[in-house]
Amino acid sequence: MSAPDTEPSLGGLLRHMRVAVAAFAALLVGLGAIVVLGVVAPSSASSVIMLVLLAAMVATVLLFSMEVPQEPPLTRFFSGLGFAWVAILVGMTLLDYFTR
């Protein structure tokens, strides 16, 4: 236990946030890629690539911004649970629409 640190400079703060800054940059790159693929230069494969990019961005936020890997195992399990359930909801409903 040390005494409260004196307030650092902005650079000092950012030095403690290397992971967050990298995640931030990655998210902006992902956003840029989605805009390019979807708006600027759409192609037939765009949708699939965009969904993959979206999944990567979601993973980035969960892993680095929300620090899921540092959580206890049950919390980690919990954070994945929601997405699994969304997959069930969407997947099984669309199954109906595709087999009509």
Binding site: W85, I88, M92, L95, D96, Y97, F98, T99, R100
Partner: peptide, 22 residues
Amino acid sequence: TFVVWGHHMFVNGIGTGAAVVF
């Protein structure tokens, strides 16, 4: 219990394939 809800809808016009899976 989360993957069986379609059994309430077998005659409601859902796809035959979906009905079989549910």
